[in-house]
Design a protein around this nucleic acid. Structure first.
Lengths: 198, 198
DNA sequence: TAATTATGTTACCATATGGTAACAATATAT
DNA sequence: ATATATTGTTACCATATGGTAACATAATTA
């Protein structure tokens, strides 16, 4: 039983390596330009071996999505339980979201969300994101109620916020000039104060 | 000569129809899932006919980009020539940018920018966008100088702004609930005032 | 009218790639 | 040790698709 667990762990680990490598490659070369042979080669295995860990190519996207959405929703659970102003909660959310999204698997999900060829999978993918967006909208709505957030169209604000945050996946790399904290600071300032001078 | 001009015009028109139809399809179905046969069928022609108007499939992306970047740069010329505060200029830019970007060809460009398989074309595509981003950064820098924009990292701000604006291409459709003016208003408010209540 | 140029078609190919069947080998459990 | 489930390989196929050559036709020009 001890051994059987370890086998299962190994399996999980290997799956994770496959997902991260595939995700990284999907990001830099694109989903369709990255073949399953390419991905297999990175693991030093052959293509059919991949099918022991994934159902098909699209399943890689689905799995990246599941992992990422679970993280985000768990984080939202934590953050929304706080007993502070909704603006503070929004702050915390942005901070944590940036941390989560700066990861190849998450990046891959953001970049390919809703783009599965299987209609049902695509629908589900869009719903997953909409659910998260809805929860953030709820934070904003509460903020408008408690006065910590100015009166605005919460739907549009949530979308704009996500566009900015998700946009990070295209340009931010942790080895670059800007540190994660500095970035979060700058986004916070933009979101709370806007750009106009005093 | 009169006739030869008309022939040239026809050619331009047909090219434009090809580009818009292809662009629309690339957006909804994706670049790789849309075949040249598909695109040809929309024009009621056959695939080889397309090659009279475009060099190859990727050339569609390139042409969409050229058209869009020309529009944006011309708009920037206009807007930056204004004799008002830089914050006003930024306002005007956002307004006009939204108008330009709400168009299938522009949408297609935004969604596929820098994703050409040909390395040199991809490089050029990224440069085109960086040039535009640089001009907006210049507006922000001037705004910081004249005090109309608060002191901030102009690079990050420009990127965040573009992410929000370009994100529109993924969700905004002119037939939806939100009107273009309302949308511009909301973005303006977010950019200038931020979200915090008074 | 004759010659030339622009526009379009049919038929075809080379290639890449997702996916599978059949077959080995290796570890685990009894 | 033996049976079983797991993990992996080689060989293969069906299909889609970007691109081209050769051929046909309509429009301009001389």
């Amino acid at each position: 039983m001890q051994q059987s667990l370890s086998r299962d762990e190994k399996r999980q680990q290997k799956l994770h390596v496959i997902l991260s490598n595939a995700a990284k490659e999907f990001i830099v070369r694109g989903y369709y330009k990255t073949s399953l042979d390419d991905i297999a080669r990175m693991q030093n295995v052959t293509k059919p071996t991949l099918y022991y860990y994934i159902k098909n190519k699209e399943d890689i996207l689905v799995k990246c999505e599941q992992i990422t959405c679970e993280k985000i929703n768990a984080m939202l659970d934590m953050v929304m339980a706080r007993d502070t102003s909704s603006l503070d909660i929004l702050h915390a959310f942005i901070n944590e979201y940036i941390k989560i999204i700066t990861d190849d698997v998450a990046r891959c999900h953001v970049r390919h969300r809703g783009q599965m060829e299987n209609k049902e999978l695509a629908r589900q993918s869009i719903k997953n994101h909409k659910d998260i967006e809805f929860r953030v909208r709820e934070i904003i709505r509460r903020g408008i109620s408690d006065g910590s957030i100015r009166d605005c169209n919460s739907t549009i604000l949530a979308i704009l916020l996500f566009d900015s945050l998700n946009g990070l996946t295209s340009w931010y790399h942790s080895d670059g000039q800007v540190t994660l904290d500095e970035l979060a600071e700058e986004i916070m300032a933009l979101v709370t104060k806007g750009v106009s001078g005093k």
